[in-house]
Design a binder for these strands. Structure first.
Ligand SMILES: [Zn+2]
Ligand SMILES: [Zn+2]
Ligand SMILES: [Zn+2]
Ligand SMILES: [Zn+2]
Lengths: 168, 168
DNA sequence: AGCGGTTTTGTAATATTATATCAATATTGG
DNA sequence: CCAATATTGATATAATATTACAAAACCGCT
């Protein structure tokens, strides 16, 4: 169990009118630092795809990204997107939401971690948790069964607070 | 939080030479009871697909099931399989492993639950947990953020005890 | 600047996973 | 048996992802 634990960093649901430009610029700056530190090349395509992923807090599908990228780069093809996504995933800059086949930006890419996600089935917004207690419960239970954890996927579907308040 | 909690039923990793025929027959019998109780029709196709899913404790992809089914039913097509899978999922008889786009039999279909899975990346075997502490941690953390949980996906990748003992 | 190795990108083709549609058949309840 | 409903058959297509190989860009070195 010699593995770094996340501090309990919360990125709760973003309010409807938070300064999202700040989310994007912070993400890009983090990406630059992470890439620099790892000697990875944060190329124009990769940067642009990361910006497109960060267009909102809703997970984006690969082909949506492709359609969007094609508007400004007409020779973009599936590999263009999938290679960029692969790079961003490898460097922890985005997460893949398995239950949606879609991708979201990571709010804390400078600390390696497994994401845990709250996914609002009404508005589509996703919030990432960095939750020790879930992580701990997972590792503890796995350990009891002699299982060595490499990574884990936690995706929680439900209704976010804001949607819960509006008329159903 | 008025939701039934599983008892902490463990279906730890099946040993290499457990009586697997018993797994299958138990699963089919449970399926009959569940279907009966819910007034659902456990047709020949559905039964056969469930048996095929239960061919092992490794998740099976839809098109593997299709190839297999075609051997005995040459007119089987993707909808044949996907419809059967849909039925089996709806009735809790199988689970979908999102991170693998594959399906495994449920060992405890008579109690409604979200699965939590240990997935061995070496041998491919999957074990289902019915773990209160993980479930609890998820609900607690979500609750703190005003999020109402509908379902959750927990998939833990790593090395199972048996694989961990063999030479790497 | 020139060179050679490496990484990234371009391009075409294809694989894999999943769904839509409508007709035919089987099952159920009356 | 009849009519309504559920299931299955059959075809087509959508959505997601990967393979393969060539061209271009980049990097470290001289
Ligand atoms: Zn934002
Ligand atoms: Zn993250
Ligand atoms: Zn078994
Ligand atoms: Zn189960």
């Amino acid at each position: 169990m010699a593995q770094a634990r996340n501090t309990n960093v919360i990125s709760a649901f973003p309010t409807r009118r938070h300064n999202h430009g700040r989310c994007v610029s912070t993400a890009i700056e983090s990406a630059e630092r992470v890439s620099e530190a790892r000697g990875a090349r944060f190329t124009a395509i990769r940067r642009r795809v990361l910006e497109l992923v960060w267009a909102s807090h809703e997970p984006v599908a690969a082909y949506e990204l492709l359609d969007r990228l094609k508007l400004e780069k007409s020779n973009a093809t599936p590999p263009t997107i999938y290679r960029a996504l692969e790079f961003l995933l490898e460097n922890g800059l985005i997460h893949r939401i398995e239950s949606l086949n879609a991708y979201v930006g990571c709010g804390n890419p400078e600390n390696e971690h497994n994401g845990q996600f709250l996914i609002c089935t009404r508005c589509g917004v996703v919030a990432e948790l960095g939750c020790d207690s879930i992580d701990g419960a997972v590792r503890e239970r796995a350990g009891e069964l002699g299982f060595t954890v490499e990574s884990h996927t936690v995706e929680i579907q439900g209704i976010c607070e804001s949607c819960g308040k509006t008329t159903r």
